[in-house]
Simulated scan of single mutants.
Amino acid sequence: MALAGTRVVEFAGLAPGPFAGLILADNGASVIRIDRTVSPHGKPVNNDILSRGKRSISVNTKTQSGRNIVLRLLEQADVLIDPYRPGVLEKMGFGPDVFLGERGLNKRLIYARIVGFPRGGPHQHMAGHDINYLALSGVLSMLPGKGGKPGFPLNLLADFAGGGMMCANGILMALLDRVRTGHGQVVDADMVSGARYVSSFPLIHKAFPTERIFTSPPGKNILDGGAPFYDVYECAEGGHMSLGCLEPQFFAVFITTFNRALPKSFKEEWVPGPHEQFDLEKWPRLREYIRKGFLSQTREFWSDLFHGTDACAVAVLHPDEASQFDRDFSLVPSPTPILSRFKSRPRETPTQSIVLPMGEHTEEILTELGYDGWQISELAIEETINTLHGRAKL
């Protein structure tokens, strides 16, 4: 696999950091997640579902012996993923200078830091989530919603696209640069800037206005539901169809096929044709015509009708349906893109193995680091580590 032999240490965090680690693990990197320890009477709980292909070591970094374990891990690592607010790892004794400074312990380390608000900015020490980062990026204000307020697309744009994926992209660039220079470096990612970058197309159009592309209020532009030929429509008996026939030749295929398929009981005084697509005065009437038309038949009817055509009309699938429509799909998404020289698409992961128990590989990893059975037992007794079975096996 493309990243085979690459050693990654991921400090346990929320979605963006684990997603960056997942991308690396899915492509062959050896990813070790550092989890916290719990008291002997506590129950280690981890809800991170982005754990595929990773291993977990549970370490108490408040003890010197715990910090020594982490330092030994990082001395041998290629990549560190820091998901915390600015300064947290520095206070723990694992700041960039420890590894990349003049007397650094690992000058080849790629030190990847991912935060929500930009470092050095006025919000850098504040708590936040995807919706907050999206708000400061300027992108949220452009997303159509209901009642005049912006809507938001789950936590996809800032957390995962602008956060985890951008961080992984920076790591890959730094690894390539290390091949050339032999040196590691710090990769800084923040979700506000990342959300802006993945939204370059609408933001640039907004800054330099062109024909009806993000120049009108949200919900009034061609690509945000303002155009009747780029929207989602309800069908008979529930279900929806997506329509995206922007280009005139595609709209012509859609409207011609659509008109012919309407039942005889569907009667409208006005029947739109291909040449009326960009007649803005007729858009309200065109939208109502398409809306009523889709309601005349089921989603399955329209999906079958437009299948194999250039009408740009396909069914809106639920997650379980989407996992069945392509033989390469599954309930758990597989990594993409596919590289022709490497196998990088694991088959469906059983549900029970999605979540990685905290400390599942503690003893295994410590053994790899050179700790013997007695040392591991002592670390467990002094509560520097947790093992999956509660105590180390000698």
Rank of each mutant, 00 (worst) to 15 (best):
L157Y: 11
D159Q: 06
D328C: 10
S242Y: 06
G93Y: 05
F325C: 15
F254M: 13
V98Y: 06
R85S: 08
I385Y: 00
A161V: 08
S330W: 05
V314T: 15
T210L: 12
K393E: 13
H361Y: 08
P96L: 00
G238L: 01
T61M: 15
Y233F: 14
K149W: 11
G370V: 10
V31Y: 01
L140P: 01
G273W: 05
S334L: 03
A313N: 00
I213D: 01
L71V: 10
R212Q: 13
F152D: 00
A174L: 05
H275R: 11
P333H: 13
R103K: 14
D26W: 02
L80T: 08
G164Y: 08
L14K: 03
G225E: 06
A20Y: 04
L379R: 07
T309F: 03
E276F: 06
F278M: 10
A236I: 01
V115I: 07
Q352C: 11
A2F: 10
P209G: 07
F254S: 10
H361P: 06
D310G: 00
P150T: 09
P40V: 13
T387A: 08
K54T: 02
S303E: 14
F94L: 14
H307R: 15
G21R: 08
N259C: 14
V9A: 05
I32L: 08
P40Y: 07
L366F: 06
N169K: 14
A315S: 15
A195S: 14
L100E: 01
G120T: 00
G53S: 12
S30L: 12
K393V: 14
P209N: 02
L89Q: 09
